[in-house]
């Protein structure tokens, strides 16, 4: 059974049309997204800024209320749970953030940041057991337990991200939504955090929904990838396969735009014209059609459904051919 199953999830934010207008419009930040994450699996979520990745991640772990759709965790519909049960279930999914500094309370010591998570779920009421758990957690994420009484500003960016990870792990989650966890880090430190996340996954059977805009990082860490554009998934499938042979024109452009170090790479570059359109007035038909190099007449009017074009590969493009 899948650990997480999301069906037709929508998150629409009301926005005012102008400063004097009473009329309300909606940002369709997430607009009908379905996917699953298996136990112990990493699913990568890529797309450009504003496409809805953070909103989707937050909605999945119930930090924001979805407008529509259903979220199942271990087969249980989260919307059907009473407040008390939901609180207990929430312990099983956690989030780590891009900016570890902004997400850590600067007035609290590391011990208290991690201890607070334990306290909320009453996981270690006795002081000695609490202290031991905090020390173990610091060890597990590669921090020196003797630094437990220090404050976040005394640590480097990479170490702060480790604190954020320790806090998430404190409550023994099954799923962690990682929202751009390495994007703000120095290149030489990114690999440390990626390796740590992979080690923890193996040791603890964790599942990750790993959000990032760096496709190479996402490919490395994920078994499967979801590609998002304007609030929708336009392609999904095996991580290596998607990068080797993308089917959706947007995925193709995204992959060809990644700067590569290899000077002999003979890649065909696809330079997309124009900017990402607004999710307030997404284009009709296929939302990608105004930037699509191969769009046809029907792309302007018919919304393409996400359909299976090869085993395990789904693409929302009228022109994608089905492999037999």
């Amino acid at each position: 059974m899948n650990l997480l199953k999301v069906q037709n999830l929508k998150v629409h934010f009301p926005v005012k049309r102008g400063p004097f207008s009473r009329e309300r419009e909606f940002v369709r930040a997430v607009d009908g997204v379905s996917f699953f994450v298996a136990t112990g699996e990493t699913v990568g979520l890529v797309g450009e800024s504003g496409c809805g990745k953070t909103t989707l991640g937050r909605a999945v772990i119930k930090l924001i209320e979805p407008t529509d759709g259903r979220i199942f965790f271990n087969g249980e519909n989260l919307a059907a749970l009473d407040a008390e049960t939901l609180r207990a279930r929430r312990q099983k999914f956690q989030m780590i953030f891009q900016d570890p500094y902004g997400s850590l309370d600067s007035r609290m010591t590391v011990a208290n940041i991690i201890g607070e998570a334990l306290d909320i779920h009453r996981l270690a009421p006795a002081p000695a057991a609490r202290r031991e758990r905090i020390e173990n957690l610091l060890n597990d994420v590669g921090l020196d337990p003797s630094h437990a009484q220090r404050y976040p500003h005394e640590f480097s960016g990479g170490q702060r991200q480790r604190i954020g990870i320790a806090r998430a792990l404190a409550v023994e989650p099954k799923l962690i939504v990682c929202d751009e966890p390495v994007s703000a880090l120095d290149v030489s430190v990114q690999a440390q955090i990626i390796n740590l996340l992979q080690d923890l996954q193996r040791a603890r059977g964790l599942a990750y929904l790993f959000v990032a805009h760096d496709l190479a990082v996402v490919r490395h860490i994920s078994q499967r990838i979801l590609v998002m554009y304007l609030g929708r998934i336009v392609e999904s499938g095996d991580a290596k396969e998607i990068c080797r042979s993308p089917k959706h024109p947007y995925t193709q452009a995204l992959i060809s735009a990644v700067p590569v170090v290899d000077p002999d790479s003979k890649r065909q570059r696809i330079i997309l014209a124009g900017d990402v359109p607004s999710p307030i007035h997404p284009p009709g038909g296929c939302p990608f059609h105004p930037r699509c190099p191969v769009a046809e007449a029907r792309c302007k009017t018919e919304v393409p459904a996400l359909r299976e074009v090869a085993p395990g590969r789904h693409t929302a493009c009228h022109l994608a051919t089905v492999e037999k």
Partner: peptide
Amino acid sequence: RALMHSVPSLTAHVERLTAIPGNV
């Protein structure tokens, strides 16, 4: 060399990245 090895590639597969220890 270490910097180039520590970033994942879009084509080649490595099980584990070669991280640079410590901080800048």
